[in-house]
């Protein structure tokens, strides 16, 4: 569960497991699930933004030059970005 702290006992559960702290899901690093990571080869990239749109984690960001990068704290390695990229600019490589 990464470093996220939750309620200790059932009495500490908020009714309905409601969470009142906005943005708290950021503390859950889904990146720990990953077996492969996407690697961008920018020379092939046409900056269409498809990878950015399709990423189910919403963890792909555009950099200053208009290329795309994944935040590896949240990238779960699903490979959707690589599958959707038309020019084949993204390769999934094994994690060490």
């Amino acid at each position: 569960m990464a470093d996220k702290k939750g309620p200790e006992t059932w009495k500490e559960m908020n009714p309905g497991c409601m969470v009142f702290r906005p943005g708290s899901s950021r503390e859950y690093h889904t990146g720990s699930w990953r077996a492969q990571k996407p690697v961008w080869q920018n020379e092939k990239c046409i900056k269409c933004g498809i990878c950015y749109i399709f990423c189910p984690e919403g963890c792909i960001k555009e950099d200053e030059e208009g290329y795309f990068v994944a935040d590896l704290n949240y990238c779960k390695g699903c490979g959707i970005c690589a599958h959707e990229c038309w020019p084949g600019a993204i390769k999934m490589v094994e994690e060490d």
């Binding site: 569960m1 309620p7 006992t9 059932w10 559960m13 309905g16 409601m18 969470v19 009142f20």
Partner: peptide, 27 residues
């Protein structure tokens, strides 16, 4: 008790991992 409203942010229908699910059911 709570409501979805811009002034009172709340997440409802959240996920409970195995370490919380039983506590949620007991509650």
């Amino acid at each position: 008790y709570a409501m979805v409203h811009p002034d009172t942010p709340v997440s409802m229908g959240t996920l409970a991992m195995p370490e919380f699910y039983a506590e949620a059911l007991k509650a």
